[in-house]
């Protein structure tokens, strides 16, 4: 048993209405994609907003949007995935700690630096007293919340689970990660050949449950995180378990990130899925650990649309504008935590 996606809240480098037929997505310029934040004033009281870091306000706004979209006032469970956590507040407190030599420190940034601040604040705002988890494991933090939602909705068929992936990229984090040679050069973009990817960030939250309703986006039938080096073999196994042939997949959202060191690996692993159109979703959200949640939002948008815009599709795979019926998301993070998510049109 899988889950039905009922509501989406999305803040990313795109202006993104998941229910609309508008697919204007911009690949952007330069080596860093920054979230386009909405006007929060209708969503968060200004006094509270002032005290919130970017990750907290994005998380709360997306939680509210996802619930409104799903037509619920409160979820039963909250599980978020974030690899980096609340970086801005962490850096702030760390900087003060060092520059003030462990003296005259104030608690606010420390309080908000905990990784579970976002899920805790959502619970506080909604008075949601149920299960509340935060997974903080690298490139499959979001995927774990989805796996868990399968189990939570099976334990309680009436459960509305709020799940999602959220990461903020601060200037310091961007600078430091750049020093590892992770990103492309400042004047490069996604399509520049060679090493390095485009930096990203985002918040994508979902309300999922076990019920097929008129307004459900899609049915997520399975998720798998690979545990071996034989990714292609695990993909075959994944399709087999789901009683599918490779030809049953009409659209692949691939975690290609523009870094040749990794993109050749993905291309090789997906080689048996020949008939599918492919979309490189990180062109639109950048590379970050919980980017799989952006892919799921985009997949849901495609699965309720009556077309698949050609301009999103990669040129080296089949091209057509037929509506998507079955989408495979294949993501990885630095060649680790290769994951498959299968989403189906209702």
């Amino acid at each position: 048993m899988g889950v039905y996606i009922q509501g989406i809240g999305n803040i990313s480098a795109q202006i993104f209405d998941p229910r609309s037929q508008d697919f204007t997505l911009h690949a952007g310029h330069g080596n860093r994609l920054i979230c386009i934040e909405p006007d929060y004033k209708d969503m968060i009281p200004p006094m509270q907003l002032r005290r919130m870091s970017k990750i907290v306000r994005m998380g709360i706004a997306c939680a509210k949007a996802a619930m409104q979209d799903a037509g619920i006032v409160k979820p039963d469970t909250i599980s978020l995935g974030t690899a980096y956590g609340c970086l801005a507040d962490t850096e702030f407190f760390l900087q003060k700690l060092i520059t003030q030599d462990e003296s005259m420190l104030t608690p606010t940034a420390f309080i908000q630096s905990t990784h579970n601040t976002v899920s805790g604040q959502i619970a506080l705002l909604l008075n949601c007293t149920g299960h509340n988890f935060t997974y903080v494991h690298r490139g499959h933090s979001f995927e774990t919340t989805l796996q868990e939602a399968f189990m939570l909705t099976q334990e309680n068929v009436n459960c509305n689970a709020l799940i999602g992936g959220i990461d903020e990229l601060t200037n310091n984090a961007f600078n430091i990660i750049s020093r590892f040679g992770t990103y492309k050069k400042e004047d490069e973009h996604f399509n520049n050949e060679g090493k390095g990817c485009i930096a990203g960030e985002g918040a994508n939250l979902f309300v999922v449950n076990a019920k097929d309703t008129k307004s459900s986006y899609a049915y997520c039938s399975d998720i798998h995180v690979c545990s071996t080096e034989n990714i292609a073999e695990e993909l075959d196994g994944f399709l087999h378990v789901n009683q599918l042939q490779a030809s049953d997949i009409d659209t692949c959202l691939l975690g290609l990130n523009g870094d040749e060191r990794y993109d050749t690996i993905i291309a090789n692993n997906i080689r048996n899925v020949k008939n599918a159109r492919t979309i490189s979703f990180k062109k639109y959200c950048g590379e970050y650990p919980s980017s799989g949640a952006f892919a799921m939002a985009l997949a849901c948008k495609l699965l309720q649309s009556n077309t698949t815009p050609m301009n999103l599709q990669d040129l080296n795979a089949p091209l057509n504008d037929e509506p998507a019926q079955r989408v495979l998301i294949y993501n990885h993070y630095k060649n680790q935590y290769h994951s498959f998510i299968l989403l189906n049109r209702l």
């Binding site: 956590g85 988890f133 545990s227």
Partner: peptide, 16 residues
Amino acid sequence: KHFVTTINTACSSSAN
């Protein structure tokens, strides 16, 4: 390697 994850729910992390 079959499954690895990390939980940070502050002081309840390892109970969770």
